[in-house]
Write a protein that binds this DNA or RNA. Structure first.
Length: 414
RNA sequence: AGAGAGGUGGCCGAGUGGUCGAAGGCGCACGACUGGAACUCGUGUAUGGGGCAACUCAUCGAGGGUUCGAAUCCCUUCCUCUCUGCCA
């Protein structure tokens, strides 16, 4: 959630920031109004309650002194009636505010480039030169068929479209990649954790998936539970509603989890192959940090993900997202895009974001700095999307006959 | 899943209708004592919101109710523990 006090005091500045993210001023004005309404509704309510509390305390005295209480009771009853009305107004204002506030995306950093969509993203650098083929490189689904690596049909049979089955060497490579990623992350100081793959609505609200993006989530029927769309949810919310001590920060976490996404709104995109699935494996990094250190940690996370791709010998580029392409919770995001020679394109394989205090405010994650409780900064990033890495290896390491070489660093894992 | 017990501050633990945001202890922070430390003594020590402030509202797992007044009584729900069942 954005800082509503900041919004109130610096409306024009806030408005300019959110414009970059595609939020029009009217929406922000609405939020501002509701925040003001709530404050206006709360003031008389609290005053009335204070009066009631004062009067109620008198009862004790009256009783002890044997005084008559009928008159006092009549006064309190009148006050109570007034409170009921004020309470209804305040509650309405509160609910109206929450509705808008929880749907408002994070402010982008000032450094975020202006732009409407991914076409306006800025390539910062390329890492590794794509290899030149002396034959026409195939796409991963063609290679999958030649090698019997991916069973698309039976994945669909077992569940539905956008599910697939990895077989034999592919299944082993999936597992090898997970182990490799976790090992690298652990060496960089991330604590490996193993988390529930199903989280409740409070947690999904904490990281920003709810209430706005419920349509993207698989919900457990009849329960307040959702399949996680990313390990960012359980890892960040590990400290939901906690106050940490400054000395335990930064907290660096990594976990392998499957991720479940409905991909609502992606109908027709990447229907072929394994790029966009309802279920995919990912190894995630999450960091909780003091505000002053989050930029540094962000850089480290980008470097780490890039380094993993380099170790795998996969050409990629580092891209800074423009305001219009930023996710809901992100203040700044860098994507890593891996080269897919079969598609002749760079495709997203990692996305690293600093959400500043946006998620921390929602999830109530603070740390104690002397006497003050301060919101932490939360960061998250993939290191890496496993299925897409598998695809990238298939396409980049293919031979003319369709066979696939194993990257050197993976050999000890297979 | 069925039966019983219970959920209070960082932790332990009192509190069964008013003076309780909450005794006491531990822990922690600061100060005194010490050459330094332990011990001892003193002070402080929940969270969120409103207000320049004095101050004030809310919170004793969560939600609702009774009452002038609820940590305390009632209902619902979640969680934990024990026993039974089931199971990797």
């Amino acid at each position: 959630m954005i800082d509503l006090k900041y919004l109130q005091k610096n409306f024009d500045e806030a408005s300019a920031k959110l414009l970059k993210k595609g939020v029009d001023t009217a929406t922000l004005e609405n939020l501002h109004e509701r925040f003001t309404s709530l404050k206006e509704a709360n003031a008389p309510l609290e005053e009335a309650k204070a009066e009631q509390n004062r009067m109620s305390k008198l009862f004790g005295e009256y009783k002890r002194e044997g005084k008559d209480m009928a008159e006092l009771k009549a006064k309190v009853d009148a006050k109570k009636e007034q409170i009921v009305g004020l309470q209804a107004t305040a509650r309405e204002a509160e609910e109206a505010l929450q509705l808008v506030a929880l749907a408002m995306p994070n402010f982008p950093d000032d450094s975020v480039p202006v732009g409407a969509n991914e076409d306006d993203n800025i390539e910062l650098r390329k890492v590794l030169e794509p290899r030149t083929f002396d034959f026409e490189p195939k796409e991963h689904w063609a290679l999958a068929e030649i090698n019997g690596w991916i069973d698309f049909e039976r994945g669909v049979k077992l569940a539905k479209s956008r599910f697939s089955v990895l077989r034999g060497e592919a299944a082993r490579m999936e597992r090898a990649l997970i182990n490799f990623f976790l090992d690298v992350n652990r060496q960089k100081g991330f604590e490996e954790v193993c988390v529930p793959f199903i989280n409740n609505s409070t947690m999904l609200q904490g990281t920003g998936q709810l209430p706005k993006f419920e349509d993207d989530l698989f919900k457990v029927e009849g329960e307040d539970l959702y399949l996680i769309p990313t390990a960012e949810v359980p890892l960040t919310n590990l400290y939901n509603d906690e106050i940490l001590s400054a000395k335990e920060l930064p907290i660096l976490l990594t976990a392998y989890t499957p991720c479940f996404r409905k991909e609502a709104g992606s109908a027709g995109r990447d229907t072929r192959g394994m790029i966009r699935q309802h279920q995919f494996d990912k190894v995630e990094m999450v960091a909780l940090s003091i505000p002053e250190k989050s930029d540094e940690i962000f850089e480290m996370m980008v470097e780490n993900a890039s380094d993993i791709l380099t170790q795998l010998g996969l050409p990629h580029r580092v891209v800074e997202l423009c305001g219009g392409d930023l996710g809901f919770s992100a203040a700044t995001t860098i994507d890593l895009e891996v080269w897919l020679p079969g598609q002749n394109k760079y495709r997203e394989i990692s996305s690293i974001s600093n959400t500043r205090d946006f998620q921390a405010r929602r999830a109530k994650i603070r740390y104690k700095d002397g006497t003050n409780n301060i919101l932490v900064h939360t960061l998250n990033g993939s290191a890496l999307a496993v299925g897409r890495t598998l695809i990238a290896i298939m396409e980049n390491y293919q031979n003319e006959d369709g066979t696939i070489e194993i990257p050197k660093v993976l050999k000890k894992y297979m």
